[in-house]
Design a protein around this nucleic acid. Structure first.
Length: 417
RNA sequence: GGAGGGAUUCCCGAGCGGUCAAAGGGGGCAGACUGUAAAUCUGCUGCAUAUGCUUCGGAGGUUCGAAUCCUCCUCCCUCCA
């Protein structure tokens, strides 16, 4: 591992964020000598980012912490096209309305990690729709298009893989990399942005931007990519039993978010502590030494720290406490995710199957039946074998709720509205 | 423009007139074992209050009966021009 002079690169390096850079020495010098502006682009294809983007967000976080200026570039314009990288088939096209709604949702999460200018911080949030939407096609082709060689573009992985696998790649998507390169040059022109970061799959796109910047403005730009993260057993980051691990609390409860990190595989604990928390390195080293069942303590720290960054310390502690009561004591914690049903329905009695669906523990009645058959379903911690079971007022426990469980880890409280 | 090949359930991929809700694998979920881990083993994996319904690119047709045959359409691929 190279020893870096700049604090920023030193931290990124020792915490495992760096996969490759375009020019280690020059970049290090730059960061050591001045306050640098750098950016990462984010898609606007969903209303929330998920845990897979967290590593990028952390890089921006560290950038700001070490005295530099991070820019989050929202892909309002590029999301109109869709990144062909690592996708087998063409994406559905989003409407401008979709995209704007998505951008609004995504912004929420960033505020937890970065201080934006509006609030007296240095971070910027920029939307590439600002310049992409007004591009004049002929002008753009002449100014920018002349610098791109199709021969070379065809050799990029994002394109080549699709062609090799005999899958279609539309011209629209083919242009994605040009627009991304153009983004970099625009940011460099407008904000003196010198660095683009991203996942290692973005390398080609970023390097294109560097080349273009040099040709258009003689700018000296840099790339820094992070490793593509998978769990030790090969799974993709950011997926859980109930789907993606969203950052927005309205899409994934704080408790479930905490649970996701709590269930980290042994082999990933140290890596994740470094990447996703801001704990000092020696503290991480101490936690990583724990063996066997003791490692569970490290996982709890991991979960609480990651959750605290996103949702705040208080919410994180609450989730931790809820988990403790639920798992360690086997009690019903009042703070589990909950749904509410109208009082009248409870009086009449609700079918268990329907209730499980409503609680989003299963996706269909049939799914619920299968769960019951397999012994996965519990009501108030009592296993259920009767598919026709009806939940009524008599099932309410002292704290006025019914606890539904699907499997050992997923619990939902049903309250009366 | 011409000639051929293809489109199957979340993904890959068999099926080529009934026994097909559709082999096998992957993924996912659950159970057992554990440490709310991994690995392993087992079960489940279209919807619906059974026998019912909807699925095999789309629309028609042949047939008692079609994912399987025919016609047209859409999209993809390969070769020729």
């Amino acid at each position: 591992m190279t020893a870096y002079k700049s604090e920023f690169l030193q931290i990124l390096s020792e915490r495992g964020f760096i996969y490759q850079t375009s020019d280690d020495d020059a970049l290090d010098k730059l960061f050591a000598s001045e306050s640098v502006t750098g950016y990462i682009g984010f898609d606007a294809t969903a209303t929330s980012l998920h845990a897979g983007s967290l590593i990028q967000i952390m890089m921006l976080h560290w950038m700001q912490q070490t005295g530099h200026r991070p820019i989050t570039l929202m892909g309002g314009g590029t999301s109109m096209i869709g990144d062909p990288s690592l996708r087998d088939d063409a994406r559905k096209l989003l409407t401008p309305d979709d995209i704007n709604a998505n951008l609004a949702g995504i912004k929420q999460a960033f505020a937890s990690y970065l201080n934006f200018e509006e609030q007296g911080g240095s971070a910027l949030m920029v939307n590439n729709a600002d310049w992409l939407m007004d591009i004049n096609y002929v002008e753009f082709l002449r100014d920018v298009g002349q610098h791109f060689s199709v021969n070379r573009m065809l050799s990029f992985d994002s394109v080549k893989l699709r062609l090799d696998r005999e899958q279609s790649l539309s011209f629209l998507e083919f242009n994605y990399m040009i627009l991304q390169a153009y983004d970099f040059t625009e940011l460099s022109r407008r904000y003196d942005c010198r660095l683009q970061m991203g996942g290692s799959d973005q390398w080609g796109n970023i390097v294109n931007g560097i080349d273009l910047g040099r040709r258009l403005h003689g700018a000296s730009l840099f790339a820094l990519t992070s490793p593509l993260l998978t769990t030790s057993s090969g799974g993709k980051m950011g997926k859980s039993a109930s789907g993606a691990v969203w950052l927005n609390a309205d899409m994934l409860s704080v408790y479930d978010f905490w649970q996701y990190w709590r269930n980290t595989e042994d082999a990933d604990v140290e890596r994740f502590l470094k990447l996703y928390t801001t704990l000092p390195m020696d503290e991480i080293a101490r936690l990583a030494k724990l063996q066997g069942a003791e490692l569970n303590d490290a996982k709890k720290v991991l979960a609480t720290e990651v959750t605290a960054l996103l949702h705040g310390r208080e919410e994180a502690e609450k989730a931790a406490e809820t988990a403790r009561v639920t798992f360690a004591e086997g009690q019903t914690a009042a703070d589990l995710p909950s749904i509410s049903v109208p009082s009248a329905e409870i009086d009449a009695g609700i079918g268990l199957l329907a209730l499980l669906v409503q609680a989003e523990l299963v996706k269909s009645n049939a799914d619920a039946r299968r769960g019951i058959k397999g012994g996965a379903v519990k009501v108030n911690d009592t296993p259920v074998s009767d598919q026709a079971m009806s939940i009524g007022r008599s099932h309410l426990t002292n704290d006025g709720a019914v606890k539904l469980s699907f499997g050992k880890k997923r619990h939902v409280l049903v309250r009366v509205a």
